[in-house]
Simulated assay, not measured.
Amino acid sequence: MATPPPQGLSPEAKLMQVATGYWASQCLAAVIRLDIQDCFKNGPRSIYDIAQEKNCNGDALYRSMRALSNMGIFMECEEDGYFDHSPTTKILENPNGYINALKFETHPSGYKCWSNYFETVKNGGPNAHENFNAKNMWDVIHQDKEFNALFSRAMGTFTKMTTFAILKEVGHEFAKYETVCDVGGSKGVLMNELLKINPNIQKGICFDLPSVVADTKSEDSRFSVVGGSFFDSVPEADCYTIKNVLHDWSDEKCIDILRTIGKSMKQGGKIYIFDSIIKTKNTPSLPSLLDVRK
């Protein structure tokens, strides 16, 4: 028997919250695209003054900020028309932080990928195919320079968030390997950290698409960059890491990726997979949503 959903909102309110979820994300998308999050560094400000600075409509911006503040995103002050950061949004002031992930996830190209999802459910296949004449979302990312740049920055942010946990749990296990390759390694954050704590590693390879690793650098002489597709080939190594990659692909594509790695792996090698896992049923779960985005 299925577990009933947790108590709280009425069935009608819960269903409407999901149905109108894109209203909230569109409000957030507009606000962060204008970089409103950077306007409260010195405390509360009039949203109408900010609207003048940003050359946008004050009434529409006020309504968007009011809607977000009622969800705990920013805070409406007692003085009419004034807003400030809430505990949730203070982190968005860091230009190299979580703001990059939000800008990527709310980008117009991302919304367009989802607009044809009904056909995906009916016929299978990737979300983005019909609207972009693309095979999958990754083709869409590489067609749009702005979307591509946001993707790279967002992946860097996610990597920083997860690298600490990886190092804590298994970081020193890599000392027994001569060559370690991070597949889908983006800007090399994880690989650089692994090299720092494992002086026995002779070579650390950051492998990703050429456009992603084009400007990836390191002060460590053992660090190297290789561009390519993990569907074609990967560099030879005796250990591989693949982090937050497989959840973006179908089971068949995941098998293809792992087979590609297996062909290049030295005898006795090992793959470390770090990714989201759907553990429980009938509970809120971001991994279960990641699983439908292909």
Rank of each mutant, 00 (worst) to 15 (best):
I261A: 06
I141T: 02
M1P: 11
A154M: 13
S152F: 00
A154Q: 14
I242S: 02
A175V: 03
G268Y: 01
L258D: 01
D139H: 13
F158N: 11
A13H: 11
D256V: 01
D182K: 06
F223A: 06
T179N: 07
K266H: 04
P108C: 07
V31F: 05
A60H: 10
E130P: 00
T3D: 07
C181S: 10
Y82Q: 08
R45K: 15
K145P: 03
S285R: 00
P287E: 04
V31P: 03
T179P: 05
E130W: 00
D208W: 08
M16V: 13
F223K: 07
T89N: 03
P4N: 08
G227T: 01
D139K: 10
T157V: 13
S250D: 04
T106G: 05
N55T: 02
I166C: 06
A175M: 09
R293T: 07
L102I: 07
D59L: 10
L34Y: 09
G43Q: 07
D256R: 09
R222W: 05
F151S: 12
F40Y: 15
F274N: 10
I197Q: 15
D248V: 02
P210S: 13
V140S: 11
G72M: 08
Y98K: 00
D215W: 01
G204C: 07
G227F: 02
V212W: 02
K41G: 13
D80T: 10
Y117G: 03
P4C: 09
E119L: 03
Y22F: 12
C27E: 08
L92F: 15
D251T: 04
M137D: 05
E78S: 10
C56S: 06
P210R: 06
I255P: 01
T88K: 09
E252M: 03
K217S: 12
T88Y: 11
V245F: 02
I277F: 06
T260V: 15
G185D: 02
R45F: 03
T241Q: 06
N57C: 15
L167G: 07
N42P: 00
G43R: 04
I257H: 00
M137I: 14
S115A: 08
K103D: 08
G204T: 11
Y98W: 05
K187M: 09
T159G: 08
N192S: 15
K160C: 08
P199I: 12
Y98H: 01
L194V: 13
E78P: 01
C56V: 15
E219F: 05
D256C: 07
Y48L: 15
P287T: 11
N55V: 05
N42G: 09
N131Q: 09
P199W: 11
I271H: 09
N198R: 10
L15W: 09
E130L: 10
S10A: 13
I99D: 06
A51F: 12
M65I: 04
I73M: 07
P44V: 00
I277A: 10
G268M: 05
M75I: 00
G58Q: 06
E53I: 11
M1K: 10
K196R: 15
Y62E: 14
G227C: 04
M161I: 11
K145D: 12
L34W: 08
N198M: 08
